[in-house]
Amino acid sequence: MRPKRRGGWGLIWPALLLLLLIPNVLPRLLAPLSGGEIPNLGDTPLWRLALVHLGLVLGAEAVVLALGVPLAVLVTRPNRAALTGLTEALTGLGQTVPTLAILALAVPTLGLGVRPTLLGLVLYGLVPVVSNGIAGLLAVDPALRDVARGMGMTPRQQLYRVELPLSLPVLLAGIRTSTVYNVGTATIGAALGAGGLGLLIINGLSEQNTSLVVAGAVLSGLLALSLDALIGWFAPRE
C-alpha cells in the first residue's frame, strides 16, 4: 500500500501556540476578562514559562522511554509471560496513586523544585509506554518471528529488525498518551517551585485572577495538542 499523505491540520496547534507566546498578544485577547484592561500576566515572559514546562515534560519522557521500552522488551521475551501482568500492575500504581500524594511523599526526600516534579511525571507517564510497548510486541505475528529465525537472524536481530519496527505504531500511541498526560501533570509542579505554565494557574487561583488562570490553561492545552500533533506527524502510516 502507498503511504497516506500527512495532513497539515495538526500543525495549526504549534502555530497558534507560538502566536500566543508573542509578547502582548495573549494579554490583549484576555482584556475582556479584565473589564477591557490589558491584564498583567507576570514579570516572567510567557515563552520562558513555556520552555520550562516543555523541558519538564521532555526530560520526564526521556526517562520514561529509557525505563519503559527496555522493560516492555524484557517481559515479552519467551518464557517470561508471568512477568507481564506483574509489570503492568506495578507500573499502574503510578496512576492509581494521586499525583499530589506522590509529589508530597517525594518532597521530604528530594526537596522542592524540579526533582520531585520529575519523579511524579515519570511514575505517571510510565504506564502508557509500558502497556503499549507490551501490547505492540505481543501482537507481532509469531509466523514472522519464525521466518526471521529461519533466515538465520539472532534474537537481537529479530528484535531490532522485526519486532520493534512492527510494534512501533502501538508504542508511539503510548508515547503520545504519556506526553499529553504529563503536560497537564506538570502544571502541579509549579506548586513545588518547578515553574512552568502551572505558575500562571497557581498565581491566578491565589490572587483570584481569572486572566492568569485562563492564560495558563490555554497555553498548557495548546502545548499538549502541539506535542501530540508533532509526535503523530512522525508516526508511520500504512
Rank of each mutant, 00 (worst) to 15 (best):
G120N: 11
G120I: 11
L121H: 08
V122T: 05
V122I: 13
L123W: 13
L123R: 10
Y124G: 03
G125D: 05
G125I: 02
L126K: 12
L126M: 12
V127T: 15
V127L: 15
V127I: 14
V127D: 11
P128H: 01
P128R: 02
P128W: 01
V129E: 11
V129F: 09
V129G: 11
V130T: 04
S131K: 10
S131A: 15
N132G: 14
N132C: 15
G133M: 00
G133V: 01
G133H: 01
G133R: 00
G133C: 04
G133Q: 01
I134H: 09
I134T: 08
I134P: 14
I134F: 09
A135H: 09
A135R: 11
A135M: 06
G136I: 00
G136K: 03
L137C: 14
L137V: 11
L138H: 10
A139N: 04
A139W: 03
A139F: 04
D141N: 07
D141W: 00
D141M: 02
P142M: 03
A143H: 12
A143M: 06
A143E: 15
L144T: 05
R145K: 10
R145C: 06
V147K: 00
A148Y: 08
A148I: 01
R149K: 13
R149G: 13
G150L: 09
G150H: 04
G150Y: 10
M151R: 05
M151S: 09
G152E: 12
M153T: 06
M153I: 05
M153D: 06
T154K: 03
T154N: 11
T154F: 09
P155K: 14
R156K: 13
Q157H: 08
Q158V: 11
V162M: 08
V162A: 07
E163R: 08
L164G: 05
L164N: 04
L164H: 06
L164Q: 13
P165C: 10
L166Q: 10
L166S: 14
L166D: 13
S167K: 03
S167Y: 05
S167E: 00
P169Q: 09
P169S: 11
P169C: 10
V170N: 08
V170P: 09
L171C: 12
L172C: 14
L172V: 14
L172Q: 05
L172A: 13
A173I: 01
A173N: 05
A173C: 01
G174P: 02
G174S: 08
I175S: 12
I175C: 14
R176V: 15
R176S: 15
T179F: 01
V180H: 03
V180D: 12
V180T: 14
V180N: 10
N182M: 10
N182K: 06
V183H: 13
G184M: 00
G184P: 02
A186R: 09
A186G: 08
A186H: 11
T187V: 07
T187M: 02
I188W: 07
I188M: 14
I188F: 14
G189E: 11
G189V: 04
A191Y: 15
L192H: 03
G193P: 00
G193C: 12
G193S: 07
G195E: 06
G195V: 05
G195R: 06
G196Y: 08
G196C: 04
L197V: 10
